[in-house]
């Protein structure tokens, strides 16, 4: 924790940046991070967004302002993730009883279900940030979207893998072409497409908007794909957790929910770390970054 001093340093720097630039509205030139005039704490990239620039939520649309905030969130989330993982695994393995029909194998759900949920939630979040980025041209929205994608892909892969290992002893097969499995697999493909597309452009800004568009196209298609494969094939059980009640014993449910929050915290922490790395990469010519890390 030797970074705290540095952190407050960053924060005050960012603040002074904002103060010295009361109407920061210089649009970025084409091409990645090339010749930015002075240090631009460009709050928002286009004129439409500029109108809102006085509102509180645009304050953190600026990478310079968001950088220290992201650092704080990251640290907090690491702490929460580690603590909740320990608590969740303890309850899951040492407090929760054996399941009546599945025996001990059911303990895989403490990671399988959160991973499957995160895979879906992260895609939605990605689509949300992409839409925001396309609508207002905020660079930070695109960065958030990029930062989420690899973790989302990993969560989809983990839920497929753990599902296979759980399915073998319980259903009797590693893989069935079942609706949920298949649509998770397709979700994984969509993540891969997004990541590959974002990487295919030399021009970062173009890559931002192109991948944002494909994230939205995918988001429109996800429900259609889900229903088409549902109709095609289904074996997966109904949802165990529904609004208004759940069909799980309470200790098992507690463990699973604790693990879910741990996964949330982990994903947020990783995304914040990635956003900070991207800010360093993309804003490397901005002066405020000079004092950040040496």
């Amino acid at each position: 924790m030797a970074r705290t001093e540095q952190q407050s340093n960053e924060r005050s720097k960012a603040r002074s940046n904002r103060a010295s630039n009361p109407s920061p509205s210089i649009p970025l030139p084409e091409g990645e991070g090339s010749v930015e005039p002075t240090f631009t704490s460009v709050n928002v990239g286009n004129a439409r967004a500029e109108r809102f620039s006085g509102r509180w939520f645009w304050r953190f649309a600026s990478p310079a302002a968001f950088y220290p905030l992201a650092g704080t969130i990251e640290k907090l989330c690491w702490f929460v993730a580690i603590a909740l993982t320990i608590i969740g695994l303890y309850i899951g393995f040492f407090r929760a009883p054996t399941d009546a029909t599945q025996g001990e194998v059911y303990r895989v759900i403490y990671i399988h279900v959160p991973a499957a949920w995160m895979a879906m939630v992260i895609y939605l979040a990605m689509a949300f940030w992409s839409a925001l980025g396309l609508a207002f041209g905020t660079r930070l929205s695109f960065m958030m979207s990029h930062a989420l994608a690899p973790t989302g892909a990993m969560m989809a892969a983990i839920s497929l893998w753990t599902g296979a290992l759980w399915g073998r002893p319980t259903w009797g097969t590693y893989w069935v072409w079942d609706a949920r499995l298949t649509s998770t697999l397709i979700l994984f493909f969509l993540y891969i497409g997004y990541i590959a597309l974002a990487a295919a452009f030399d021009d970062k800004k173009k890559g931002d908007r192109a991948s944002a568009l494909i994230a939205l196209v995918g988001a429109v298609n996800v429900p259609i794909i889900y229903f088409s494969v549902q109709w095609w094939n289904t074996l997966h059980q109904g949802a165990s957790v529904r609004p208004g009640g759940s069909s799980m014993a309470s200790t098992m449910l507690t463990a699973m929910m604790v693990m879910t929050f741990a996964f949330w915290a982990y994903c947020v922490a990783v995304a914040m770390h990635r956003v900070r790395t991207q800010i360093i990469e993309r804003e490397r010519d901005a002066k405020w970054l000079a004092g950040v890390k040496q």
Partner: peptide, 13 residues
């Protein structure tokens, strides 16, 4: 990579 996953519904039907 981008197109084929999105054609799965038409393939199924």
């Amino acid at each position: 990579v981008l197109v084929l996953p999105l054609t799965i519904p038409t393939l199924i039907f």
